[in-house]
Amino acid sequence: MEMLRVDNLAVTRGGLPVLEGLSFTLEAGHALVLRGPNGIGKTTLLRTLAGLQPPLAGTISMPPETMAYAAHSDGLKSTLSVAENLQFWASVYGTGSIEPALERMNLRQLSERAAMSLSAGQKRRLGLARLLVTGRPVWVLDEPTVSLDAASVVLFGEAVRAHLAAGGAALMATHIDLGLHEARVLDLAPFKARPPEEGGIKGSFDEAFA
């Protein structure tokens, strides 16, 4: 089943096109890993897919209310406990218990700790546990494994695999190997936007300035 379809997409950063002509699909049970050098526009692409910024051109189609987005930062409130942080997002997404998520990300012993006392890796795990409580099938992840140690990366890989096995899908930008051998890799370098003089798409900055 197709969860996400992107057609001839162009995205901008600060008014300038960074990627153009990008098309791909993502099916249920599959993962897609975005690769490319820094500044190619991975974060911009993911933010566009999440609906935080409008695309310059092209279409993004997906069923409504299917996507959960996780950015660089986890959106944790340092004075709230682990359980309170998770419970908040569970209520926002209208899903029930946070227990399975705590269990899966190995956070049960920490659930009463304030988020500020967590280590960087533990925070990241909490941020990923948030994805589990959203109950959304399509995960859009921006560098999900930053500051995770090897054991936690394995834990995260397992969480993603379980999510895929349950009919979910994942789209992520990452540099390291998650051990997800079934994941497709999409290199963004060929989609780098060309300058308008070479036939590239025009950004809002270039609107007929000449």
Binding site: G15, L16, P195, F205, D206, F209
Partner: peptide, 14 residues
């Protein structure tokens, strides 16, 4: 000014 800024930014990105 706007045109200048656009050119500058494009140069930085290229």
């Amino acid at each position: 000014l706007r045109r200048l800024k656009a050119l500058e930014q494009r140069e930085r990105m290229a």
